[in-house]
Write a protein that binds this DNA or RNA. Structure first.
Lengths: 174, 174
DNA sequence: ACCTTAAGTCAGTGTTGTTGACATTCCAAG
DNA sequence: CTTGGAATGTCAACAACACTGACTTAAGGT
């Protein structure tokens, strides 16, 4: 079961072996791989969250607040792709529990800017470390070239809006 | 099952550029890429399911029943990684609606073997086609080498149990 | 002043997951 | 042949996380 390795113009219509990676069977395997891998991807942080009163939604919020300190609620909503009611439920508990601080905006006082407290940063680190450990193991096992390809395919899979969101996080935050 | 033989020994401790793909920043980007990409991955079938009385759980069940016709419930439970109560709710509606047929096992009459009906196969095709179209677009955009890497990393990310499940689906089904 | 935007809130609903308890059927070992 | 345990199915209750819709408050911008 060897994967073809030819640099070939993608404009060519499927005929030979070269596009074997586009057969329905190959695509289906990719779909299943994505499904199974996503479970592995979330399992480490999920294990930590078990027992605490938080879930995956809290983890995601913490992650992006850590990533872009001072981010306002609107931006976080766009990134997470959920409704404000859904986010609010999560955010409220995080603020009540002293993991997140919500400061009134300086330029625009309607906005609330979100920051992790020390406690919040501590939990975020625990979660992040666990997830990074998993990711690191997978990266190490697959090697740098595979990782580059992995990233390329994932980026191509994103919806355009999310791709630009992803890009803006990548190079430089706010 | 050929794992790539890479130029660089993975036992070397991070120092030069060679392991730049293992920096915390790189890992974090991979994590975010996975998060955003998964949304793109599910969006096409989700759009179809909208309006029908089914959800993602129904899609997953249909997918794997289509993949391994005659699969018993226990196997499906292992693959999906949910409780039997959770699966049963989904399966029951699919059977009631005539999308899935549940036949008593021949060798072991306790077992139920699951098959798609014509109607079930039709819906499964619609969903599968939509998801494959998305996947194909991403694959085409990234190219064959990237796809090979993508698959390698995903496989490394799976939990061991899921990796073997994935493998058994890949080469040969039941 | 008026309209819009940002944020938060209340109420209701749906999907998907979880436990726990229990019944049924049936294979296989004693 | 009896019995223990496995496979399946079902009922009930509950939790996490999403949704829609309607509304308020505060602070812009024009």
């Amino acid at each position: 079961m060897s994967m073809t390795k030819r640099g070939i113009g993608m404009s060519e219509v499927s005929s030979g072996d070269a596009l074997l990676f586009l057969t329905d069977e190959q695509l289906r395997q990719g779909i299943e791989a994505m499904f199974f891998a996503y479970r592995g991807f979330t399992s480490a942080p999920d294990a930590i969250l078990e027992g605490l009163d938080y879930g995956r939604a809290h983890h995601r919020a913490l992650h992006f607040i850590a990533r872009v300190p001072g981010m306002n609620v609107k931006r976080l909503l766009e990134i997470l792709g959920v409704t404000k009611q859904s986010l609010n439920r999560v955010l409220r508990t995080l603020i009540e529990d002293g993991l997140v601080e919500s400061r009134v905006g300086t330029a625009d006082k309607r906005e609330r800017h979100l920051y992790l407290t020390e406690t919040g940063a501590a939990l975020e680190s625990r979660l992040s470390d666990a997830q990074r450990r998993q990711m690191r193991a997978a990266y190490r096992q697959a090697g740098p070239d595979a990782v580059a390809g992995f990233r390329q395919v994932l980026e191509a899979m994103m919806e355009p809006r999310m791709r630009s969101t992803y890009g803006s996080l990548r190079d430089g935050g706010a």
